[in-house]
Design a binder for these strands. Structure first.
Length: 258
DNA sequence: ATGGTGGCCTTGCCA
């Protein structure tokens, strides 16, 4: 089973590239973030032509997450089932695809350390943790993917000095991320390449970051142990960040023996 | 060097 996560930064702007990419890479499941589409503006028919069922949790203009699957979509759930109230933003959608519980998630950016949005980011990561604790066990087949807007270690960014005092690298963010892993998820890329640096999933459009190889590894495929041990391939498709109208994120792809 | 680029419901805000 091939599972991919990709922050497309507007599905409307990216649809031709996403369709081309799907035809070439043929994932079983594609999790999309930042559709920036209203709930009913999702181009489900375009994906159905390629053999994908889909579910979308959208709000228009900002955020929006989706799951496309060739192996079925059961029990879709938008947001959290953690006993809390609804999230104002469309940032996570769950579905069971081929027997695996999968979440496509877009963690809040945080804007600035200490900002209201930063507090929302930490609270949001806490809700993800609570949802996992309430609904699953680490022995289940669970895969949480998406744009976490957190770089877990300094080797996940191009220059630690450039991030002094910035979001994405602060201790509370890294601890909240680590706490989620401690529940029972592995960062599948890091598990396979413990020491690798310089491989990223995101490069700012500004200042020629991509061409200068100044990126960040902030998109993840997190999996419970039964799946992590069955990972055969994990890579970021840097080529998808090149050329005409790319997203600022590259797809992250994993193959599992399923 | 506090810039730069790209997306949106665009003349400001978000990333």
């Amino acid at each position: 089973m091939r599972i991919v996560t990709w922050n497309v930064n507007s599905l409307n702007a990216r649809l031709p590239r996403v369709i081309d990419w799907l035809e070439t890479m043929t994932p079983d499941v594609l999790c999309i973030q930042e559709t920036k589409l209203a709930e009913d503006a999702f181009p489900a028919e375009e994906f159905a032509k390629l053999g994908y069922e889909s579910v979308h949790h959208g709000q228009g203009q900002w955020n929006g997450v989706a799951i496309l699957s060739k192996v079925g979509i059961e029990d879709p759930l938008s947001g959290f089932a953690d006993g809390g109230g609804p999230d104002d933003d469309a940032r996570i959608i769950w579905a069971t695809c081929g027997g695996i519980r999968i979440a496509s998630s877009y963690i809040p950016n945080g804007r600035e350390v200490g900002h209201e949005h930063y507090k929302y980011k930490l609270a949001w990561l806490g809700r993800l943790q609570a949802h996992l604790e309430k609904n699953h066990t680490p022995a289940d087949d669970v895969v949480v993917v998406g744009d976490f807007n957190v770089a877990p270690e300094d080797k996940d960014i191009w220059d630690s000095k450039a991030f002094t005092g910035a979001t994405h690298v602060s201790t509370p963010e890294r601890e909240a991320f680590e706490h989620i892993l401690q529940w029972g998820l592995s960062d599948v890329f890091r598990n396979r390449y413990p020491d690798e640096s310089g491989l990223y999933t995101f490069w700012e459009y500004m200042a020629g970051r991509f061409h200068k190889r100044e990126g960040m590894r902030i998109d993840f495929i997190l999996a419970t142990q039964p799946l992590t041990s069955q990972c055969e391939l994990i890579l970021m498709d840097r080529n998808a960040r090149k050329g005409e109208k790319p997203s600022d994120h590259a797809p992250l792809l994993a193959d599992f023996k399923r």
